[in-house]
Design a binder for these strands. Structure first.
Ligand code: MN
Ligand code: MN
Ligand code: MN
Ligand code: MN
Lengths: 226, 226
DNA sequence: CTTCAATTTTAGATTTGTCTAAAATTAATT
DNA sequence: AATTAATTTTAGACAAATCTAAAATTGAAG
């Protein structure tokens, strides 16, 4: 049940890619891992051999149950370490990804469970992504970008796709942060800009460009609240 | 300035071995790393190539200044992580070595400096070994085993060589822990057993076997105190 | 000073993960 | 349907880290 660093990186990347599309392609995975398609094919054979992957050559691939379990464990570790780095070591949320990319491969199960307890069993990482629990259950919350949302649905900001300083400046200025609750009040088809409303604030307008990069989640419990 | 996991493990092991003897031998290093002499020779060539090592074939080897610096950084990381595991995650001091053996290879300098600050710049790890500071300065304290000590010298328990449950039981029973201050009151040449005295306690006798496995340090400040 | 044993190094293989360049397959266009 | 383009896989190579077995060197004993 212990996989190499490279295998864990592949499993995790496949997991994320197959969330979007059902099947993952060789090129997409190579791009995500900044490696070459030929290298991906090599690895796919090994992962299939180890029965972590459903794969027929030229046909695309996806994780099977075993592979998904392994991937979720890596994601759990990644996100718990990110939380630790931000909440305990005072790193900024934009500084922790690369470090967590290394820490996620530390193998001790006891370590990660104790870290989880030490942190108070956090539910989401510093980017708003849910942290799988110790049984590997990953909270499925619908996540889309703000641009694809209907009017008057209350949602929670859960992430930012492009985290450039310029983008962050816009959000800062409009008092939008992780966890902020907001709803769309009006859409302007002319330029696909939106007017949104944050509680206790005047409405503001966001460009289509910005809206595409703001990721939001809607728990059922949040939208159907009464 | 970044070395592979295997190279870091070699550097660290050489560092520890050359503390005892000036020059390290191929066989000794192979034993310490649980690998083969031929593998050690292979690695020695690479480390010499990278100018971390003084090495002439068949002649033994030792780290040069660069190599020592690299080794000390690994040791710093190892001991800080051990401290974290024990003090923050509630691991026992006998459970943390293997986990730290992995964590010591995480490369981020910022991470280790922040971890150090988060822990309050501890001076020694859970086994009583000194933690190098961020400049790589390693406190040199004379360390020997209790068996090799003169009478009436006050010393501090800094480590236990053989940490078997049986050994720990003896120490527990005699109220000897890390940091305990004690001195030898009498030596019995018949069986090389010792009578020692811990402050506020009646004297107790330790066998030569036990005395050999109790490591103690004597800071100059401690023995010459006035 | 030889001879033998222990230590150390070399020679040659193996495993894992990666790459480039070329071939195979699939998808898209005329 | 035939050609072209894109994608994917194979073939072959390479670097890093390890191993076994054999050769070289050193050191100890006789
Ligand atoms: Mn990673
Ligand atoms: Mn994250
Ligand atoms: Mn290690
Ligand atoms: Mn230690």
């Amino acid at each position: 049940m212990k996989y190499s660093v490279s295998k864990e990186n592949h499993l995790k990347a496949i997991f994320h890619l197959q969330q979007e599309q059902g099947l993952v392609t060789t090129n997409a995975l190579a791009a995500a891992l900044r490696t070459r398609p030929a290298s991906v094919t090599d690895m796919l054979k090994k992962l299939k051999e180890q029965k972590l992957l459903i794969y027929e050559r030229y046909k695309g691939f996806k994780l099977n149950t075993e592979g998904r379990k392994a991937a979720v464990q890596v994601i759990r570790k990644h996100r718990l370490w990110e939380y630790f780095l931000v909440k305990k070591l005072q790193f900024g949320w934009d500084e922790v990804h690369d470090i967590a990319e290394e820490l996620e491969h530390i193998s001790s199960r006891a370590l990660i469970d104790r870290l989880d307890a030490f942190l108070g069993h956090p539910e989401t990482d510093p980017h708003g992504d849910p942290i799988p629990d110790s049984q590997g259950r990953l909270q499925v919350r619908r996540q889309t970008c703000l641009a694809d949302l209907p009017l008057n649905k209350t949602v929670q900001v859960s992430g930012v796709a492009s985290q450039t300083p310029e983008m962050m400046e816009v959000l800062q200025h409009n008092h939008i942060r992780l966890g902020t609750r907001l709803e769309i009040k009006k859409k302007f088809p002319f330029d696909d800009s939106l007017e949104i409303k944050v509680r206790n604030r005047p409405p503001v307008t966001l460009s289509a460009r910005v809206a595409k990069n703001v990721l939001v989640t809607y728990d059922e419990s949040l939208t159907e609240r009464r």
